[in-house]
């Protein structure tokens, strides 16, 4: 290993905590973010409901105290908005965040319109797949772009490098969001529907495991969202990502010790820990959930491709 050389030349990169996708109780969320404020190696935290507007009211009262605590701990706070906006009520929520002067992560084009060109982050639910789209959004005052989860290394290289006039963020840990819908699949799995859902999504704090008819665990359902069964883990690939010009590395909250997860990633970014060793540490934190990295390597999303580096 040419460790010293790397430390000098490589940009370190910032670690972010993506929005919580799951429906945890307000108290659990508050305690979770307090711990992040106190113990995690995280630079930016995205707060806010992305999946279902019905859940929004539960955490509202804690939002000010949580963001204050995070900011006091020196962390940047960004408000994430809904991934699929359809009703007038949802539009006014999006507009309210945009007008309140928060830094907003736009996850639906609705937010872009509400922002009227104020600086913002483009979330992974807005499709930025090529240079023209990136450049157009940057002109519209996007200061950071979180790339779609589907993107392979080659495309990330093109979008992060080549004089991108914006920060680029890539999700490197957690269940990958694969689709958003109007329908609530969590409710359907309980033979209920979205309008009378009883908030059954709260029963599965890390997503509802979904198997094929051949008993292969394949997806995780989280309300209206469908996610990968495995956690995406880009640890062995971090050095490559850094060299491509990716500036922010997103950890997506799961029901595991996220503070520990953040330190694992921090250490690899700082070249203080070998990726292979870090992978073993991470496995101890995440228990039995398999790791995946297929999209990055251009193959099936649910696949795990061993790094040949």
């Amino acid at each position: 290993m040419t460790e010293n050389q790397n430390t000098q030349n490589s940009p370190a990169g910032k670690i972010t905590l993506g929005p919580l996708f799951f429906h945890w109780t307000a108290e659990k969320r508050r305690d979770f973010y307090f711990r992040i404020a106190d113990e995690a190696a995280i630079d930016s935290v995205y707060l806010g409901e992305v999946v279902c507007s019905k859940r929004e009211i539960f955490f509202k009262e804690f939002l000010p105290v949580v963001s204050e605590r995070l900011q006091k701990a020196g962390k940047e706070v960004i408000v994430s908005t809904l991934a699929l906006v359809t009703s007038k009520r949802e539009m006014s929520t999006v507009s309210a965040y945009a007008d309140a002067g928060f830094m907003v992560e736009a996850n639906d084009v609705a937010s872009l319109q509400a922002l009227h060109g104020r600086p913002h982050v483009i979330g992974p639910f807005i499709n930025v797949f090529n240079e023209s789209t990136r450049d157009y959004l940057v002109k519209n005052n996007a200061t950071r772009i979180v790339l779609p989860v589907e993107m392979a290394a080659e495309s990330v290289d093109r979008l992060a490098g080549g004089g991108a006039a914006t920060e680029i963020e890539v999700m490197v840990f957690g269940r990958q969001p694969l689709s958003v819908a109007m329908r609530c699949y969590h409710a359907r799995a309980h033979e209920l529907n979205k309008d009378s859902c009883q908030f059954v999504c709260g029963l599965d704090q890390d997503g509802l495991q979904t198997n094929t008819v051949d008993q292969q665990p394949i997806l995780a359902v989280n309300g209206t969202q469908t996610m990968s069964h495995g956690y995406v883990v880009l640890l062995q690939e971090l050095a490559k990502l850094q060299n491509m010009g990716v500036s922010h590395f997103r950890l997506s909250p799961q029901d595991v010790d996220m503070a520990r997860v953040s330190h694992v990633y921090r250490n690899v970014l700082d070249r203080k820990c070998d990726p292979a060793e870090a992978l073993e540490t991470l496995k101890a934190v995440t228990d039995t959930v398999p790791f995946i990295n297929g999209f990055w390597h251009g193959s099936e999303g649910f696949a795990w491709v061993e790094n040949r580096a």
Binding site: A83, L84, F125, N127, P148, V149, E150, Q176, L178, S179, V180, A181, M182, R183, I218, L219, T226, S228, G294, F295, G298, S299, E300, G301, F302, A303
Partner: peptide
């Protein structure tokens, strides 16, 4: 059923 243009289920299964 999914929000179109933003569904990655097929590539998740086929690449």
């Amino acid at each position: 059923p999914m929000s179109e243009g933003r569904c990655f289920l097929s590539s998740y299964m086929t690449g």
